[in-house]
C-alpha cells in the first residue's frame, strides 16, 4: 500500500495530473483509491468514480485548517483504501497553506505548480515545496522557454533535492516518469508521522474566534511591538 499526497495552489492542475496518473496506474494493473480534502466544495470524488470506477471519497475540512484536517483523517483513510483492496491511496489536498505541508513520512509528496504563476512562486510557497519529493510544473506550453528555465532554477534553488517534472497534463506528457516514480515509492509504514512541523495548530483564530487584537486571544500571541509569548493557563 503506497500513499501519494498531492498539494499545490488552487487551479494549478492537481486534479488533471492525478487523472492522468490514475489512468496509467489502472493500465498497469494497479488499484488506486482517491481521497479529496477540500475546504467547502469539491466534486472530484464523483469525477474520479465516474471516469475510472475506483473507490473515492471526499472530506470537507470546514472550520478546520485543511492541512490539520489531513492529519486528522489520513490514518483512517489509509485503512479505508486497504479495506477496499487498493494498492495506492491518492490524496488530493486543498493545497492552500503556505505555512504547512500535508506530506507524511514514508509517502510520496507531490507539489503541483503552474509555470504561469510567476517566477518567484518557488520562493514563496515554503514547506509545500521544500518538503515535497517531486515538483510537477504544469502549463509549460504557455510560458517562454527562458522563463521555464528560470522557474526550474528557482525551484532547485529552494530545494536542491527535489525532482522537477515538467508536464503538459492536458496532453499527458511528462506523466510517465511521474508514474514510474510512484510505483518505485515505498509502502506506508506505521506509525504515520507528518513530515514537517505545522504551525501552531490550536490557535484561537483557527478555531473560529474572530475578534481582532491579541488581547482577545489565547495560546501563543504577539503584539505589534515585540515577540510572541504564551498567554493562558
Amino acid at each position: 500500500m503506497k500513499a501519494v499526497i498531492c498539494a499545490g495552489p488552487p487551479t494549478s492542475g492537481k486534479t488533471t495530473i492525478l487523472k492522468q496518473v490514475t489512468k496509467r496506474l489502472l493500465r498497469n494493473g494497479h488499484r488506486p483509491a482517491y481521497l479529496k480534502i477540500d475546504v467547502q466544495y469539491a466534486d472530484e470524488d464523483t469525477l474520479f468514480a465516474d471516469e475510472f470506477g475506483i473507490p473515492t471519497r471526499k472530506v470537507y475540512s470546514g472550520e478546520l485548517c485543511p492541512d490539520h484536517c489531513n492529519v486528522m483523517v489520513l490514518g483512517e483513510a489509509v485503512e479505508w483504501a486497504m479495506e477496499n483492496d487498493c494498492d495506492f491511496l491518492l490524496v488530493e489536498t486543498a493545497g492552500l497553506c503556505l505555512r504547512c505541508s500535508p506530506y507524511i513520512e514514508g509517502s510520496l509528496g507531490l507539489v503541483v505548480i503552474e509555470a504561469t504563476s510567476g517566477m518567484n512562486l518557488p520562493r514563496k510557497i515554503g514547506p509545500m515545496l521544500s518538503l515535497a519529493d517531486v515538483a510537477i510544473v504544469t502549463k509549460i506550453d504557455l510560458v517562454s522557454q527562458a522563463e521555464r528555465e528560470v522557474f526550474r532554477a528557482r525551484i532547485l534553488e529552494a530545494v536542491p533535492t527535489v525532482r522537477v517534472i515538467e508536464t503538459d497534463a492536458l496532453y499527458g506528457i511528462g506523466v510517465d516518469p511521474l508514474v514510474s516514480r510512484l510505483i518505485a515509492s515505498p509502502d506506508v509504514a506505521y506509525p504515520l508521522y507528518l513530515r514537517g512541523n505545522p504551525p501552531v495548530g490550536t490557535c484561537t483564530i483557527c478555531v473560529g474566534k474572530k475578534e481582532i487584537g491579541w488581547k482577545q486571544h489565547f495560546g501563543v500571541v504577539r503584539p505589534l511591538e515585540g515577540d510572541m509569548f504564551y498567554r493562558g493557563e
Binding site: T116, G118, D141, L142, V143, S144, Q145, E147, V150
Partner: peptide, 9 residues
C-alpha cells in the same frame, strides 16, 4: 515558440 507563448515576468 508557440502562438500563445508569452513572457509573464
Amino acid at each position: 515558440i508557440s502562438q500563445h507563448t508569452n513572457f509573464l515576468s
